[in-house]
């Protein structure tokens, strides 16, 4: 009993020492490095002006009421705009869009200074998304599964 206890104390300390000598860190130094998100990541949404047929399904299915149809005076067609204050990135709108006018981007690390800036009416909704970290020249890291380390972050070629 007593000897077992001592052995288990030693084992616990030895395990700690093992990781002290050979750490398995998973930290990504974010602003300098950025993870390339997986192929089907549901990031910020991009809107293709020309493909849209103004069916309004996206606004209908949006669970958070983030998507709304905007109609300009004198125009027949209403077009979707999004409010990123409300968006929960469930991706229902993209999945239901019958013409693939909406699509996911693999960008999610954006920040806004004012709440108004998070409002994307149709004209603004077509803008391209770029990761601010990557714009500042962050190293792009790919996530690789590894038996020894769990996740490894390797620079993308």
């Amino acid at each position: 009993m007593f000897r077992g206890k001592v052995r288990r104390h030693v084992e616990a300390i030895a395990t700690g020492l093992k990781y002290l000598v050979k750490p398995n860190r998973i930290t990504v130094y974010y602003p300098e490095e950025a993870i390339v998100l997986s192929e089907r990541y549901r990031g910020m949404i991009h809107y293709d002006w020309d493909k849209c047929i103004s069916c309004g399904l996206c606004a209908m299915i949006c669970p958070a009421d983030a998507m709304k149809m905007y109609r300009k005076k004198g125009e027949k067609k209403a077009r979707p705009g999004i409010n990123y204050q409300r968006c929960i990135f469930c991706g229902y709108c993209v999945d239901i869009c019958p013409t693939n006018a909406l699509s996911f981007t693999r960008v999610h690390d954006v920040a806004f200074e004012k709440l108004d800036e998070m409002l994307y009416p149709p004209e603004k909704f077509t803008s391209e998304w770029r990761s601010p970290a990557e714009e500042r020249g962050a190293r792009r890291l790919r996530v690789v599964f590894d038996e020894e380390r769990g996740l490894k972050h390797v620079p993308e070629q």
Partner: peptide, 10 residues
Amino acid sequence: KIAARVQMRV
């Protein structure tokens, strides 16, 4: 630093 090293952090 030691705790972080053991604990997969920086």
